[in-house]
Design a protein around this nucleic acid. Structure first.
Lengths: 311, 311
DNA sequence: TATATCGATAAGCAGAGCTGATGGTGAGCT
DNA sequence: AGCTCACCATCAGCTCTGCTTATCGATATA
């Protein structure tokens, strides 16, 4: 296999341009003998002469001309590649695959997308919304770069950083507004509407109500928080939703929202990624952005909803 | 300036394909540590990670994916370049710029072109027909690779190899056939038609007739041997032409051709090239081909013309 | 003939890059 | 839980590449 080096190609290109060993060597920041040797080496490995040396002139051979044209193409591509690396080095850019759980996605995504696009113009955001187990699987398999989920995950091999905590609030028919805030025990007496199996939020809600092993007929599963709230508005039952969903979901339904008394149920949303991910540093940066976006979203949400405080 | 080597690119490509340091190292015929170090080095010089290593798997990062695509393009171009060199190494190929003097070109070119094209399919023949001084100039300036001229040239810096020698023959009107063969002295009494100034053949003919300083009105200049022969046919005078031109030029004119008695005038046709030409080896090969082609042409010419022998 | 220019060559040295051995870590089996 | 295996990173040592300075040889110039 004929083999030459990029260095030789660069030296060659310089010599082809200057047609003078001394000058070309200066440009390459090496001594003239070094250039002579590398050119000789290159010609040797090619098995053909690139230059025709006479005492007074250095000329490209016909083969050298063609070689030079192609060599320049290659060097251009190589420089482009270096440029690509330089661009990708610090600034987050290129494809970034983020997974988000469904009980966060609708409320956080607009802000996340907006902020990330604004801060990292070269970013190609690739979003995936599904339940935690699938996110974890896709993350560990390398099909996602990071995911926004409820902590803790405690999956070995995955790093997790908290973003924010949010309380769960009770959503009940509008007519119930003003009634006393139910505690965990009285919740069990109500018809609780929950998300389908697989959603972590369902498990968290059940856990709060100590209803882990509730009889199925007491519950009714919805496929999204929006559905649940609409069902509550229709008087079918009550439900829990995370604080962040309040502004969006309770706007168009005759429901009332109330916080629980301490200890109020809550969850911590965080970001996770592989411990081995080379993007770790940039992902931490992304986490900061998401955290800020979430705070902003919650503030706006509270203002819009005139969120009632319950303690 | 970020800089990596082709070797690193090849190693990287192998690892990107196999996703396994050991296997990739085997393919590259190096040890696993060597591969690890080169990849690490590459990532270091790029300032970004190409692979994500975990204990059980080696995966390309997003950046690595893009890098791999471009790296493969570059490696392909490099291999193509090597291939180009290999093709150019032994077999003569690519552009070959040949100059030929006008008193040889019409008679030798068909055979030369045919033979060279047949023997070197990759050859791009670039022909130039002009007088010797211009050929020499273009040759020394690197605008020609070789030239076919009458020897000797005795130009320092140019190598010359003889191809063949050919006699000059006398062309006289058809009615003169059978008349005694004139010697050099009697030639001076005839009206001699010659090529314009600058043609070496003119000088050679004049030299033979010892007419170096002949009075202009005794001569008549033609721009080609064909013209001269037609003029002879019209009874305007006599001329000398090289043996090789006989078959072609005397076919369509009422002229007779006769050889001179010994010592017959003659010239040696040869090939010349720059001493510094890297094509020297291949040009010597071309010389062999041209020599053979010339011999063949002369044989065919003699047979066709029923060339009269005069000695 | 003397001088300047320019590429090739020589000698010596620093460092790149390879090998074989070893370390560390996570996965899977018992 | 502990053992073992697979796999990549690291280390020490050696070889050879590739650089430098100094010098040579050839050629054009004055």
């Amino acid at each position: 296999m004929v083999s030459f080096t990029l260095k030789q190609l660069r030296y060659f290109e310089a010599l082809a341009r200057h047609r003078h060993f001394g000058h070309a060597a200066d440009v390459c920041a090496i001594s003239q003998p070094a250039l002579s040797m590398q050119i000789k080496e290159l010609e040797g490995s090619l098995g053909a002469a690139l230059f025709e040396r006479s005492a007074r002139s250095v000329r490209l051979t016909g083969f050298g001309e063609e070689f030079a044209a192609r060599a320049r193409e290659i060097l251009r591509a190589v420089d482009e590649l270096s440029e690509l690396a330089r661009a990708a080095r610090d600034r987050l850019s290129g494809r970034l695959r983020i997974g988000i759980i469904p009980t966060v996605a609708p409320y956080l995504l607009p802000a996340i997308i907006g902020e990330l696009s604004r801060l990292f113009p070269g970013l190609d955001l690739n979003l995936r919304e599904t339940i935690t187990p699938r996110l974890i699987r896709e993350l560990t398999e390398g099909r996602l770069d990071t995911a926004v989920v409820a902590l803790p995950i405690s999956e070995r091999g995955l790093a997790e950083v908290p973003l924010f905590s949010e309380e769960f609030v009770l959503v009940r028919p509008h007519g119930d507004a003003g009634k006393p805030v139910p505690d965990r025990e009285s919740l069990r007496e109500m018809r609780l509407l929950l998300l389908e199996e697989g959603h972590c939020f369902r498990d968290q809600a059940l856990s709060f109500c100590d209803l882990r092993h509730a009889r199925p007929r007491e519950l009714l599963d919805g496929s999204s928080l929006a559905t649940l709230v609409q069902m509550v508005g229709a008087g079918i039952g009550v439900t829990l939703i995370p604080e962040m969903a309040v502004a969006v979901e309770t706007r168009s339904a005759p429901v009332s929202v109330v916080r629980f008394a301490d200890p109020a149920p809550q969850r911590t949303i965080g970001m996770i990624w592989r411990n081995t991910s080379p993007l770790a540093r940039q992902l931490a940066e992304v986490a900061d952005v998401v955290r800020a976006a979430a705070a902003k979203t919650r503030d706006v949400g509270k203002a819009q909803a005139g969120m009632p405080g319950a303690g």
